[in-house]
């Protein structure tokens, strides 16, 4: 199954990746191989088997609703490339996600 260059560009945009034309070519081949492999997996007969997102049936651990100390503001902002008055500072964004 082929993956078009257009599809590669779309996926790259969603991941905010900038690709060179050579990379687009390379990834369209590689992604096609991955998809082919998925197609192969589909050949397995999975009738009667539920979706197995979590293979081990462990009960989900809950946390009690208790406040734990947060980290200091300076610590939270330490890795930020830009900050101001306790905020992370980013290029202006208008609109929504």
């Amino acid at each position: 199954m082929g993956i078009t260059r257009e599809e590669v560009r779309h996926v790259a945009f969603l991941a905010r990746l900038e690709l060179t034309p050579e990379e687009e070519e390379l990834y369209s081949e590689q992604l096609a191989r991955i998809i082919d492999y998925m197609e192969k997996l589909k050949e397995l007969d999975t009738t009667g088997i539920g979706p197995t997102t979590h293979p081990i049936p462990t009960p989900n651990p809950y946390r009690e609703d208790k406040v734990q100390p947060s980290i200091p503001q300076e610590e939270a902002l330490r890795n930020a490339p830009d900050k101001e008055r306790g905020f992370f500072k980013v290029p202006r964004i208008i609109g929504e996600g």
């Binding site: 609703d65 734990q68 947060s70 980290i71 306790g86």
Partner: peptide
């Protein structure tokens, strides 16, 4: 709730920015 959905940071409204955060919610 008192604390966040997946970590123990407080949910209080109106605090100083980025003072109710931890590695999980960051």
């Amino acid at each position: 709730t008192e604390s966040k959905l997946f970590c123990g940071c407080s949910t209080r409204f109106g605090s100083e920015p980025n003072t109710q955060v931890c590695p999980v919610c960051l």
